[in-house]
Design a protein around this nucleic acid. Structure first.
Lengths: 204, 204
DNA sequence: CCATATACTATACATATGTATAGCTTTCGG
DNA sequence: CCGAAAGCTATACATATGTATAGTATATGG
């Protein structure tokens, strides 16, 4: 990281401490007052330098728009992840650090993109291991691979099905022989793809 | 804590997720826009109620002055979570803030306790919706309810099975008729219970 | 010696933003 | 049937706040 002048360091420290204390960014004028500057422009200049050197980012035009870069955020990541342990050859000790192969976290487990989850009702996807009460994690996207599991809104209802492409639309195939496939005619049906299912989460 | 109306809960949830995403509080008008309110006063009223009920504090007169109370920060802050959206009655708009029912997070979804995850190999639990490659989330504990799914180490191998108690030990029942149940004799078998399965996570 | 960066002052402006006043509708317990 | 609370609309206002223009002074490296 580019080196800071003493003054810039002091201002960065102030912002950091302000975040800790107030859980929000200071305003330009609060910083100015704290340092005895008579003009907010003095602070503006420093912030510009700090942004240029990569220590913070600002969103122009919004109040309290300073954000420290990841590395500077103190006690970040109060790890909400679950360690993955592998097969333990000798039985115990389980959960030894040596055996941790990775972590489960909502951040990375399901890949990038805008994710959301829907609770599944019913047993129409039971043959694909999706049970009543499970959450399916969906990546919001209009594109779904052929024969992939996805979520769509059909005639006012959300549904999880296998998406099979046809010449003029889709066939939605349930994962349970009790239910028939649904032919979608995009001209007569109200139909909107939410996105592909990228994960399943079940809490027991 | 005093109970919230559904709307108040939704607004609190919005603020919480905004904090997570932006590391700052939303403005009154950002909330209003997100919910489709045409007047900022609608939000003001809700914030007043949320403050009165003890879920947040505001500093009057300053921009982005909303702060969540400590308890709410603990469980939501610095946690990557996925919003859960409900069934959408009218089809679109999906992922509208109005439809957010809660969040999926590794912190809270699987309950308290020391959690870890194991990747499942094989199809021995397929009838219980646990597939090859799934992660099972385990709460480390020697106690397993009768006929619950749990993880154990048997003769140097980790295994996921239904635990059925017998007079002198356990019968481990696979969730696939292809495989036979395993009788455990605690005197002759090397046997150690890791804990009950409290969740399943599948990334596709 | 000159360009550049640092480090400010003074003033001004536009808008981002919290908050208030005055209503309206709906729901719900007593 | 009434009153209170929830849940809004419409409008307005004051100020909190980011940002710009213009300028001063000092140091520093090329």
């Amino acid at each position: 990281m580019e080196i800071l002048t003493p003054k810039q360091k002091q201002i960065l420290d102030y912002i950091s401490r302000y975040f800790l204390k107030n859980r929000m960014a200071p305003t330009v004028r609060e910083i100015a007052d704290s340092f005895g500057f008579r003009s907010p422009k003095a602070v503006s200049d420093h912030l510009e330098a700090l942004e240029r050197k990569g220590y913070l980012t600002r969103t122009t035009g919004i109040a309290r728009g300073i954000r420290l870069v990841e590395e500077l955020q103190e006690s970040r990541d109060r790890d909400s992840s679950i360690p993955i342990v592998g097969d333990v050859a000798a039985g115990l000790p389980i959960l030894a650090i040596e055996n941790v192969l990775g972590t489960l976290s909502m951040d990375s487990t399901f890949g990038a993109g805008e994710l959301f989850a829907v609770r599944v009702r019913g047993d129409s996807m039971i043959d694909h291991g999706i049970y009543d009460g499970d959450f399916v994690v969906v990546r919001r996207s209009p594109h779904v691979d052929n024969n992939a599991i996805a979520v769509a809104y059909v005639n006012g209802e959300s549904t999880v099905k296998v998406f099979h492409k046809t010449e003029c639309g889709y066939t939605l195939i349930p994962g349970n022989s009790k239910y028939p496939p649904i032919e979608i005619n995009p001209e007569t049906d109200e139909f909107s793809v939410a996105g592909p299912v990228v994960g399943v989460v079940r809490a027991m």
